[in-house]
């Protein structure tokens, strides 16, 4: 991180309405300056980041042209593209970069004692921390995403009803919790495994695939795989919210599936809590 020189001549008196506005403008300015310190790299990354999306759109275009049909496994071409966009939103909520690795590292390095000596529950602390980070991240990336969705508005054939949007938001929220507790469970393995990074990489790669990040699970072949993947918790991290938005979940299954998503959240919350208890028993803090 670079340090940014900042004008600190903020009035001491109560800020009032315009003062508040100025405060947030300052935060915005600082964030922008920080971004621009890496402008070359930022630009390169932004340009390259579009390539997978563009390639996916063109690849599916070729598939639909080759198949000479409008609908494949219940999805039109536009719906596949809309799905690929929506799955990014799902991921925005459910991905927890570095959470498991961070917990495992704290266990290995002995930094865990920092949390143990405080009147603080590590799991609740991490949850609050992640929630704050997610909110900040979603707030800052809302604008570019809104732009992307407006450009791609043509791919959304029908707009969902208000109720559907409500269910979508609910599943996104549960997706956040599921992603959090799943990663936390993985991180707890650090009590038993010394080096987890390669293992985490493996799990994450698999996760991307089985959660339906690359394309809708329904399209996958053989069909038995679809049934199997829909029994796993991972679909709730990416596929499920996007499918709700596109109206792919039959109305009578919507609430039961949300219930199952909630059960998975509780399951991983419980497992991570048990592993935490068991792990602490064999934990010995290294280092001074």
């Amino acid at each position: 991180m670079t340090s940014v020189p900042m004008d600190l001549s903020v009035p001491v008196k109560a800020p009032g309405f315009f003062g508040s506005i100025r405060k947030y403008l300052n935060i915005l300015k600082v964030s922008l300056v920080e971004r621009l310190a890496y402008r070359g790299d930022f630009l390169l990354g932004t340009v390259l980041r579009f390539l997978p999306m563009i390639s996916a759109i063109l690849l599916w275009k070729s598939v639909y042209l080759g198949a000479d049909t409008d609908v494949l496994s219940g999805y039109t071409y536009s719906q596949v593209i809309a799905y690929l966009l929506l799955v990014h939103v799902s991921r925005m909520f459910s991905s927890m970069p570095g959470l498991a690795a961070g917990v495992a590292r704290d266990i290995r390095d002995g930094n865990l004692k920092r949390y143990l000596i405080q009147p603080l529950d590590l799991m609740s602390y991490l949850l609050a921390y992640r929630a704050a980070h997610k909110m900040a991240y979603i707030a800052t990336s809302a604008l570019p995403y809104a732009g992307l969705f407006i450009v791609c508005a043509g791919y959304f054939e029908t707009l969902p009803s208000l109720a559907t949007i409500g269910f979508w938001l609910l599943s996104l929220l549960l997706g956040f919790l599921l992603g959090f507790f799943f990663e936390l469970t993985l991180g707890m393995l650090g009590f038993w495994m010394l080096e987890v990074t390669s293992f985490l990489y493996l799990v994450n790669t698999l996760n991307f695939f089985v959660s339906g990040h690359f394309f809708p699970i329904d399209l996958m072949e053989p069909a038995g795989l679809v049934v199997f993947l829909k029994m796993l918790p991972f679909q709730y991290l990416a596929y499920f919210p996007a499918a709700i938005f596109l109206g792919k979940i039959p109305p009578d299954q919507l609430l039961p599936m949300l219930g199952v998503q909630l059960l998975w959240v509780l399951f991983f919350a419980l497992v991570s809590r048990i592993l935490w208890r068991l792990g602490l028993r064999r934990y010995s803090a290294f280092g001074g």
Binding site: V63, Y64, G66, A67, S73, L219, M220, E221, P222
Partner: peptide, 8 residues
């Protein structure tokens, strides 16, 4: 396999 189950 998925791609070619949909098209030739």
């Amino acid at each position: 396999r998925t791609l070619f189950s949909k098209t030739g």
